[in-house]
Design a binder for these strands. Structure first.
Length: 237
DNA sequence: ATGGCACTCATCTTAAGGAT
DNA sequence: ATCCTTAAGATGAGTGCCAT
């Protein structure tokens, strides 16, 4: 599956909606109709169905429920990104935590939309994503206060994290979650050697001596740091 | 065509922990 | 003490993509 250019072309935009709640899928129809006008919808209610529908198909956009049946954590998103790296995936979830939103972007999503968002806000978010941007919901003021300011050292580390490739960021995120190389290899569908190579590159780029050091710094960052978007995309809050 | 970069893989070394 | 297993980390090589 490869992504086609967004609605600008003469052909209908194809949108995959992966959510187990029919009501929410219908709601997303309305939202996406406001964005693409004459889109073709393909629906999936669980992970297996989503992957089989996605195989061999072309989509302009995938709207993925984070808690779709069959997926644990971000594994649905990771699978989708591994199989179809060119398709923009927007994650929707009832979870409004800033950390979850940041993690979704880290795993390769181009946007994170809380289900509590108004229809207008969702339309704006999708328009931003289709325009090539990355969408994150507005940060809660209290949450922002809790996060506090970054030290010089943390900022330098954040800059180094920015230099990591997408795959390296995914590996780093899994290191932070305490996963061993073997499990990371299984989840990403690569060999353990590949994971080791990524870890080595991560350690080199982050200028740390061990994965433990990387995990401590990255963990601290994810609690405190503002989101750092991939360089090629702008971030809208 | 060429060079740079990311990704992948195989192989080797080292260290830690458990079993004998 | 020795051996075995497991995991981490380093290194070199191959492949594919993209910009020049």
């Amino acid at each position: 599956m490869t992504s086609a250019s967004p609605s600008a072309g003469a052909e209908k935009a194809r949108v995959l909606i992966a959510d187990d709640h029919p009501l929410f899928r219908t709601a997303m129809h309305n939202v996406i109709d406001a964005v693409y006008h004459d889109a073709e919808f393909i629906e999936a209610s669980d992970l297996d169905e989503m992957m089989s529908l996605a195989a061999g198909a072309e989509f302009d956009l995938v709207v993925l429920d984070l808690n779709i049946p069959g997926a644990t954590g971000f594994c649905g998103l990771v699978q989708l990104r591994n199989e179809f790296p060119n398709v923009p995936v927007v994650v929707v979830s009832a979870d409004e935590g800033a950390d979850v939103a940041h993690d979704a972007i880290t795993y390769g999503a181009v946007g994170y939309i809380p289900k509590s968002l108004t229809m207008d806000a969702m339309v704006k978010a999708l328009n931003h994503v289709i325009g090539g941007g990355v969408y994150l919901p507005p940060t809660d003021a209290k949450d922002g206060k809790r996060k506090g300011a970054l030290s010089e050292k943390d900022l330098r580390f954040a800059e180094r994290v920015e230099s990591l490739s997408t795959q390296q960021r995914v590996v780093l995120q899994m290191l932070v979650e305490g996963r061993p190389n073997k499990q990371i290899a299984y989840l990403l569908d690569v060999t353990e050697s590949t994971v080791k190579a990524h870890v080595s590159a991560i350690l080199r780029k982050l200028d740390v001596q061990s994965r433990t050091q990387a995990v401590i710094c990255a963990g601290k960052l994810s609690l405190q740091a503002p989101h750092h978007a991939p360089p090629e995309r702008s971030v809208r809050h």
